[in-house]
Design a protein around this nucleic acid. Structure first.
Lengths: 339, 339
DNA sequence: AGGTGTAATGTAAGCGTTTACATATTAACG
DNA sequence: CGTTAATATGTAAACGCTTACATTACACCT
């Protein structure tokens, strides 16, 4: 026996229309009426049935966030910061963590065709054409983070340039044998970021005329363990690298452990640079490329909010936020004599 | 111009009732009809309007997770693991991150009285009596994690005993001056966990007849920075501790940095033990108390799912999952001669 | 005083499903 | 072959809101 707007209307001695208006603070309600209705509603512990409301009004004040499995620091940080601003803007958020490409299409379908939400935020997903056109055909606002579609506003950083900066840092320190701990090539989610950063790595090598040794590029899972394993492999090759660029701080920290476990010192024997500026990075002294992770979420959320409040789509197809090299203790001059 | 069930019905040449039944796989639909309807729906790119469905059926296949601000590792890990099993069970999840006690009541209200969800998962919140009775008066299934209400099933660990184990570990290594990096006493969210762990710490000291020095108990924010600051304070007191128990791994890692920054060694000069077994703990060699963080989320979610599928509430008022002392490299024998 | 504009409220028609109930169809049986 | 019981489908009434439109009540002009 839950309370309906009808109950409140009766108790307050007004019509349901007035209750609806009073509760939502619409104009053309006498202040005295509004206050009275609100008091009655409060006393009855009434809350608007969001589903009925959405059905009648077409608005659900809910936005959907679709992203890869959220147990990585990066994704959680991005989505959490987005959630915070969306929540402050009066929206609820429905989070879909995607573990496989099929789930992705399914989730999008439910969100969009199912009219579950008023807007969608996509974080780092490789969207199939079908997915994109599904979203593009409606009027539903969509904003993406690190996801290029050519159709929706995208927030991110310049991964190529940032990776180039990271690699150059190592080169400038005299390193010539530079290992790369990259993403898994056969990842079913087809993430674009690892590829972009790999490209930056190669460009930096190329501009300094450094030969690319394929065995120096070892794939890893984007996790502490992934980095540790990849590093073990790098250590096992013939001419191991004197500097290593890991595509995430988690991987870099994993690599650090492997290096130290075999008795090598950082940065004296091997330099390591990561990517992200993970919360913990400063505490383990990790040199890294900082990207404004929370900023992605906040900006994207604000953009979405603007769209939802009727702002016309401007031409900002892609917003690139700045990255920054943060030098700490895990990189240093190359001690090895040039060949 | 979105597709409705009516459109599908017409296109398939059946009634909306049949479409509804066919799409949901209900019995009493001829297999041929079912297949046909499904094909038509697929072709029309039709998806059930979840809000209309909820309004008519009373079920929303959505569950709400209410928890403190999600940018801490622990909360994200718990909620993410819960989300994974809920999602696999066919439920969507609405996440509410609470930053202040007022938001908490507000969120609960919206969720419960607003009939937004079919069930609620509460993570580590101090519930006011009003909150509890709001939830208790309905029939909505509620499961809690590290939140004691006496009304709903609760998942967690024995924080007192676990903290006792941590402290004893230090004591067994010969430490007598044991610092505690605890929670902020004036936290508006009134978290219970820090208090419980503090109690374990005190009990361990007491059972060994060790005097409690109040200046050895310094509050900190549950973060890397919070631990670092608290440690600085511990280092500044007259007789600094030779062993430190930080109530979270993040704080412990922050403490580690402060210790090393002043030129002290771990564990030779100071031992540090944390709590959680954070992902990164193994990679920085942190001794800690492991708690099954993902397990909390999974168990709670499963319990909720069971309730939702009509299982009667059993008597499991509180389920305590085991914790475990994980000794790594940050704790060692006390070098200081006894007084 | 009659007319007009504005503010406050009420009436009732949807919104897109689900589902109890009614009906039509088919199979099974004596 | 008539009767009965399933089985398959249709009809239409909710579900609890929002909102276009209608109505009422005033205050302000002229």
């Amino acid at each position: 026996m839950t309370t309906t707007i009808e109950d409140v209307a009766q108790a307050a001695g007004v019509s349901t229309a007035t209750v609806s208006r009073a509760l939502r603070g619409l104009p053309n309600v006498a202040p005295s009426t509004r206050d009275h209705v609100r008091q009655v509603a409060e006393a009855l512990n009434y809350a608007i049935d969001s589903h009925a409301s959405r059905l009648a009004s077409g608005r659900s004040t809910t936005i959907g966030i679709v992203m890869p499995l959220a147990d990585q620091w990066f994704y959680n940080r991005v989505s959490t910061s987005a959630e915070a601003v969306l929540s402050a803007g009066g929206y609820d958020v429905l989070r879909y963590s995607i573990a496989a490409p099929e789930e992705q299409t399914e989730a999008l379908r439910r969100l969009i065709s199912g009219k579950r939400v008023d807007g969608v935020l996509i974080i780092n997903l490789a969207l199939a054409n079908a997915d994109v056109s599904l979203m593009a055909e409606g009027t539903l606002p969509v904003v993406t983070i690190e996801t290029d579609t050519g159709k929706f506003p995208a927030i991110g950083c310049n991964n190529v340039a940032a990776a180039q900066t990271a690699t150059r840092h190592l080169i400038n320190l005299g390193h010539r044998q530079i290992g790369l701990i990259s993403g898994l090539p056969d990842d079913p989610m087809h993430f674009a970021i690892p590829l972009e950063r790999e490209q930056g790595y190669r460009q930096a090598l190329a501009e300094h005329g450094i030969e690319v040794r394929p065995e120096l590029n070892v794939p890893g899972n984007f996790s502490f363990a992934g980095g540790a394993e990849a590093m073990a492999q790098l250590l096992s090759i013939h001419h191991p690298p004197t500097g290593v660029f890991a595509l995430s701080d988690e991987m870099a920290i994993g690599a650090l452990k492997t290096i130290r476990d075999v008795g090598l010192r950082v940065p004296e024997d091997i330099s390591v640079i990561g990517f992200d500026d993970h919360d913990v990075a400063a505490y383990v002294g990790l040199t890294t490329i900082r990207q404004p992770v929370a900023g992605y979420g906040e900006q994207a959320a604000r953009l979405l909010l603007a769209r939802l409040s009727g702002e016309k789509a401007a031409g900002e197809s892609r917003i690139e936020l700045p990255t920054q090299l943060i030098v700490r203790d895990t990189t240093g001059p190359c001690r090895e004599k040039g060949e």
